[in-house]
Structures are given as C-alpha cells and as structure tokens.
Amino acid sequence: MSTTNPAPAGTAGTAGTAGKQVWTELRGLREGVDLGTPPRDGEPVTLTIDGVETTVPAGSSVLLAATVAGATVPKLCATDTLECFGSCRVCLVEIEGRRGYPASCTTPVESGMTVRTGGERLTALRRGVVELYLSDYPASDIEGGWSEFHTTLEQVGLTDGLPADHPYRGGDHHQHLAVDESNPYFLFDPAKCIVCSRCVRACQEIQGTFALTISGRGFGSKVAASQDESFLASECVSCGACVQACPSDALIEKSLFPGGYHRADSGQA
C-alpha cells in the first residue's frame, strides 16, 4: 500500500525560494486534517510508517508523513499552521536504527526511514508526559470538554476514571492565577494553559504582531501579553490567531460561555 501527500498541488515553477515555500504551506492546508507541521514542496521522499510505504515532499516532518499515512500520533505543541517547536514530547515515535524516541514533529523525513508510531512502550511514555500536563489542569474541566487537549487525553487513554482519579489532587497548579477577561471577545485562563507556546508562535508567524511571549521559566513560565499587561491593554490586535491555535481552552471565545465564565474548582469562585 502506498499513499502520497495530497497537499502541495499546483506549485509549478522554479525551485524553492523562501517565499515560495510559505506559499505552498498555506495552500496545502486542509480543513479537518491537522498535518501536524506545515506542508512542504520538496522532491518526493519515500519512507515506511507502521508498514505503510508513504511518499511526502522532502522537508516534511515524520509527524506529517505519519498523518498522511493514516496514523494517529498524539501531539500538543504542533499544528500545521505553525512551524514545529518540539516542546511537549507527546509526539514520540520509534525510528529504526535510531536511539531513543525522537519527537516526530521536529524530525524531518529521510528516504528509506522505517517509523513505528504505536505500541505499548510509546503509549506508556506518552501517557507519562500527558499526565504531567493533566496534573496541572483543572479537574472539573475535563469531563465534557472537546478541545484538542481533551482529544489527546483520550488518545493516550487518560480519561478513564476521571475526575475522581485526577492526578492533580494535592499537586502543584496554576489556579491561583486570575483569569484575564479584559478582551471583550476572548479570555485567558492560566489554569488551563499547558505552555505549548502555540499562541505565542501564532501571534508571531501568522499575525506578525509579536504581542505575546512566554515569561518566566519552568513551572513558573506563563503566557504574557506585551510587558505583562492585560490582553486589552497590550499590543494585541485581537485577531484571534492565538485563540485558534490554543489546544487546551486556555485562550477561548467568551461567546462559548453564555452564562459567563466561572471557575468551579478548588475553592475558586
């Protein structure tokens, strides 16, 4: 069986200038499919994913190739409208002849590669990583949620037994940080932020406003608008690219909360 990447069509012309590359990236985007990383238009490269021979343009990521091959690789910090970042380590795969478990979103395809995207070992590793994120996510906001983060939880088998077994009980969390509701249209709830930096990158790469940064380090790192201002007071132009990019409902449209936004968890009003 063999599949080809359907994305970069209609790219006649001379070989890739930087500009042309973006052009291909944008045109290769498809609704309903998240390729994980932006489509490219290099020479065809053939590799094997879970036994399926797959051809994608050079410059594509293993994550993209896996998606094209029909595999589902859980991911959090990657999406096909943004350049890969490689911070969450959820998209781990096995590549024959390589040590360890490389992140598929930051690994470019090579001809003849053999990739495995599933198996117990990988699932256990991924679950371990996602559990860390889950432990910091408000327990009351898991059941009934439909964000990308919630999908990832399901993919790694972490939704069973929740919320009773929520690993965060007693652990460290971000629920003391106030919700920023200054923008009339969307809010930012730091308690739900997994610091994937997709919003920051969307603001830079897609919108080009550079209003967001990740300030602080480690557990203390958080999304900041301009010089740690409210979203409304910041350079933010409210284009919505960050909201669109956020996988975890931390940045979200207010219109989806008709009765207003009220935190329910751990004594928060």
Binding site: Y185, V237, S238, C239, G240, A241
Partner: peptide
C-alpha cells in the same frame, strides 16, 4: 487566519 472584525 482572521481579524477582529470577521472573527468576533
């Protein structure tokens, strides 16, 4: 992509 007008 979008802007504040169409999006919100």
């Amino acid at each position: 992509h979008s802007c504040v007008k169409g999006r919100f």
